[in-house]
């Protein structure tokens, strides 16, 4: 173990040392295998590093913390190998024996480290995947990654995923659409705001406030239109339960908008 820790900091991982580390990295002991895989990432040979990483990721006892840590050692923030690293990460994602959870970590890593060259691959992956329990983590990761990489072509697909019943996925979609920006996406969010629970509605308002140029006028418009609607409804003698629920949601949303909008905007709007 100490040897592995030593080689992690050297560039001497080649020949017999690399062969020995590869053997150790196949150990059934998770920590030993992890240590050896980390040491292998010090190798100058990209294929040794990639194979070591894939071998380790195929294990079923690996935590996200380990995956994240290894990805940093694999990448080393090396600008010179940017394309190769991007392709390697893509290849790892293609491997069927690697779980969706780990692929989620990899896709988020790609987004966080601005692998714009892999945007098409990420978009294709999202298009090909069918939403189910097993795929849910990687789909969440892909949507978040596409948002962070500003892949505007992903917007229609993300809007579709907003229809799923999973609140955490809905929030991811809202944030991704917010990052993509554009009046059309923001208008879509505002138009669908009343369909959602409190948490998602709050997230939509935050996204629109952050996209101040296009978002704030939309929010003010929402206040005007719905104020009239609520006043009109109040005049009606009998309201259905659905109608009462809708009015409650409108009031809550309008209150949220007034709170989250900058005070200057609210005051000038009246």
């Amino acid at each position: 173990m100490k040897g592995c820790k030593y080689f992690k900091y050297t560039s001497a991982v080649k020949g017999r040392v690399a062969a020995r580390l590869i053997t150790i990295s196949k150990s059934t002991n998770l920590v030993v295998a992890y240590c050896a895989t980390k040491a292998l990432q010090a190798s100058e040979n990209l294929s040794i590093r990639q194979n070591g990483l894939i071998r380790f990721l195929k294990r079923d006892d690996v935590s996200d913390l380990m995956v994240n840590d290894l990805l940093h050692y694999f990448h080393r923030d090396n600008v010179a190998y940017y394309d190769e690293i991007g392709k390697s990460l893509k290849n790892i994602c293609y491997d069927e024996s690697i779980t969706a959870e780990k692929k989620k970590v990899i896709t988020l890593y790609m987004a966080d480290h601005n692998f714009f060259s892999q945007a098409d691959f990420l978009l294709n992956s999202l298009e090909k995947r069918e939403y189910n329990r097993a795929n849910a983590p990687v789909i969440t990761g892909l949507i978040e990654a596409l948002g962070r990489l500003h892949v505007k072509e992903a917007a229609p697909l993300i809007k579709e995923y907003l229809n799923t019943a999973e609140t955490s996925l809905q929030i991811t979609c809202v944030r991704a659409l917010g990052r993509l920006g554009g009046e059309e996406n923001l208008l879509f969010l505002l138009n669908s705001i009343l369909r959602f629970d409190f948490t998602v509605r709050k997230e939509i308002i935050k996204v629109l406030v952050n996209n101040s140029e296009a978002g704030i006028p939309l929010l003010l418009q929402f206040l005007d239109v719905n104020q009239k609607f609520v006043s009109y409804s109040r005049d009606q003698s009998e309201l259905t339960i659905e109608m009462e629920e809708l009015i409650r949601k409108i009031r809550s949303t309008a209150r949220g908008i007034r709170i989250l909008l900058p005070a200057k905007v609210v005051n000038s709007h009246g």
Partner: peptide, 17 residues
């Protein structure tokens, strides 16, 4: 403690994870 020494959270804070 040994595990924490080996598996570090260095990568965790370099990404939004």
């Amino acid at each position: 403690l040994f595990h924490s020494d080996i598996v570090q959270s260095f990568g965790l804070f370099k990404t939004n994870f």
